[in-house]
Design a protein around this nucleic acid. Sequence first.
RNA 1: GCCUGGGUAGCUCAGUCGGUAGAGCAGCGCAUUCGUAAUGCGCAGGUCAAGGGUUCGAAUCCCUUCCCAGGCUCCA
Length: 660
Amino acid sequence: MSDLSVRLPDGTMRVLEPGSTSRDLAAAIGPRLANDAIAAEVNGRLSDLVAPLSDGSTVSIVTANSDRGREILRHSTAHVLAQAVTRLWPGAHYAIGPAIRDGFYYDFALPDGARFNDDDLVRIEAEMRAIIAEDQPFVRDEFSLEEGLSLFADQPYKVEIIQGVATGASADDLTEVESDAVVSTYTNTPQFRDLCRGPHVPSTGRLGHFTLTRVAGAYWRGDEKREQLQRIYGTAWESAAALEAHLHQVAEAERRDHRRLGHELDLFSFPSELGPGLAVFHPKGGTMRRILEDYSRARHVRGGYSFVNSPHITKAELFETSGHLEWFAESMYPPMELDEGQRYYLKPMNCPFHVLIYKSRQRSYRELPLRLFEFGSVYRYEKSGVVHGLTRVRGMTQDDAHIFCSSEQMAGELASLLTFVLDLLRDFGLNDFYLELSTRPEGKAVGTDEEWSAAEQTLSNVATDAGLDLVLDVGGGAFYGPKISVQARDAIGRTHQMSTIQLDFQTPQRFDATYVGADNTRRRPIMIHRALFGSVERFMAVLLEHYAGNMPTWLSPEQVRVLSVRDSNDGYAAAVADRLRDHEVRVDVDPASEPLGARIRRAKMEKIPYILVVGDDDVAHGTLGVNARGSTDPVRDVALETFVERLCAEIANHGAPEDH
RNA sequence: GCCUGGGUAGCUCAGUCGGUAGAGCAGCGCAUUCGUAAUGCGCAGGUCAAGGGUUCGAAUCCCUUCCCAGGCUCCA
C-alpha cells in the first residue's frame, strides 16, 4: 500500500491513510468541515464524498452552504421526490429531475394516466420526510450501456436517455448520464435506483430543509409534440434559516407584484370584457404613463429622432413583403376580410410602416442616419396560457424607432445608441445592467451566412466596447437579424429584458429601400430596430416592481396630498395646493370630514410621496407639517416656500422622499 | 395551445352533508372638527363567472364556455 497524499485548495499537501475518501479528508481537516461536507471536487470534477481518493489529486470539500453544495443538495432531494412518488404510485415512470435555481423538479408519468393534484403534494412531502428519516445511503454503481438498458427496462424515459447516449445524441442538457459509454446509477434502497451522473449527498439524512411548491405539466424533452409529463417543483436549502429566508423573499416578490400594485394603487386593470392581455389604464396609471412617455419623447428629440405615426391596420401585402406573415402568422390576429376579399391585419410590428415612410421619396446619403420614432401600438395574438399582467400582453405600445444608415455609419450609430439606452434607463433609476447577444436562429432566418456573421460581429464589438458583461444567447435572434438586449437587475436582484437593438439587412432588401450615395449610385441602407422601454406597459411593470410601488416623486401620479386638521383649515389647505400647482406639482386636498389618522393612513397606503398636514399653527405662520413617504416622524413648522423649493429640486433630480 | 388549481358584494374572504347568501374593508347617510397609519351609528350592496344538466330543491354534484393564477411550449 502506497501513501496517499492530496493537495488542498490553499496549496498545502495532506497525507492520508491509503484508501481514504474525501469524507476522511474532511474529518482530518476538522470536525466542523466533516459535518458540513456533502461532496468533493477532485481534480476539478465533482465527486461523492465516499469515493476513494487517488494519490496526487487536488481536492476541495464542497459544503452545503455553497452554490455547488446547494445544487447537489437539491439534486439529491429530487431523487428523494422520485422515490416517494414511486412508493405512493407503484409503476410510476420517472423521467428527469435536475436542480434548478433555488430548488429542483422531477417529471413523472403516473400509471393509467393519473395526474397529481395539490393534495397529493402534501402526501408526497410526508413520504419524502419518511425517506429522509430513514437516512438511506446514495450508493453509486457504474454499468455498460447494455446493462443500463436492462436495469431500467421498465422505465421508458430512462431507456430513451440511455439510448440517446448510445446513439451519440447530445446529453448536454441532461444531468442523468455522462456523455461517454458508462451508465452510472445511484441506489437508495433495493426498490429504488435512479440513473444519474451524480454526485449526491452521502445519505438522505443530510437533506430535509425543503418544501414542495407546485405541480405543473411539462412536455417530455421540452417538445410540445411529445407527451406531457407531470412536473413537481420544490425548493431546498442547507438550513431551516436559508429556507425561511427564501420563502420570505418569495413573499416579498409577491408583495411587489405589479399586478397587485396596479390594483391597489388604482393604476390599471384587465376588464374581462376586453379579453386576455388587454389592459385599460386608469387616471393614475394614465398619468404615470404620460410622464414616462413625455420624458422619453424629450430624450428622443435631443437624440436626433424624427417623430412619425402609422395606422393600426394594414392590407396583408405589407406583412407579406416584410416576411412576418411567412414567419409569424400564427401569432398575428387573424385577418379581417373587406372590400371583396381584401385581407387587413392588425399590426404586430411597426417596422414595415417606417420603411414605407423612408420610401415615400428618394433619399440621399446626406439624410442618413435617418431616425424615425413612434409610440406604436401593436397587437399580437399571444397564446392563451402565456399572457401575464402588463409584461406579456396582446395589445401594447412600443417606444419604437428604426434607424436607416449606411454600412459605414452602422458601428458608430450602434455605439451611440447603446449609450442613449443606458442613459435613459439610468434616468428611471435602473443602474445594474448586462448585455445579451442573440445570434442566428437555426432554420428560421433569412439572409446569407456572410451577412449574419458580419452583423453578429458588429454587435459583439459594440457590446464589448461598452464594457458591460456580455452573455451569448445562441439562436435567439429574430428571423431578419441578430440583436443585443439590455438586461437590467431590479431592486431585489431579478433580471428583466429591457431594451432591444436589432440589426436588419433583410427588410431594406425586401422593400427595395435605397438611397443615393455621394458617388451618385443607388445604395442599400441598413436598418436598426430598437425599443428602449420594450413596451411602455412592460416598462411600467418593471418600474413598479423595482420600486415596490414607491415611485420616485417625478413618476408618482399624485405627488402631494394636503390634509387640513380641522375644517376651518380647509381654505389654507386649498391655498397650499394652489401654490404647488403653480409649479406643476400634482397635488390634491383631503378635507377634514374624517379623522386625521384615517386620512393619513389612506394617503400612506396610496404611497403618496408627501403628506402635508396643516392646522391652526400653520395657518398662522404660513408653514406645513411634512410627512414624507418612508418616514414615521413628520417634520412640523416647515415654511411653505422652503418645501416648494425642495420638492421642485427633488422632482427635477428624479429623486424620492426616501433619498433624504 | 397543454397540465394543475381557482372564480361568492367594488375589494379580501367565510359558507359544514345539496335545504331560501355571510363578515370585514370600501361606498352612501347622519353625527363627530380631530396635529400625523382605521371615530361612532345607520343604510344599501349578490343572476354565487356564463350557459346547460341531475334533483322536490344546486353557490355546493356533472358537462360546456369565458376569465384568472402557477408551470410547459412560444415570445418578430
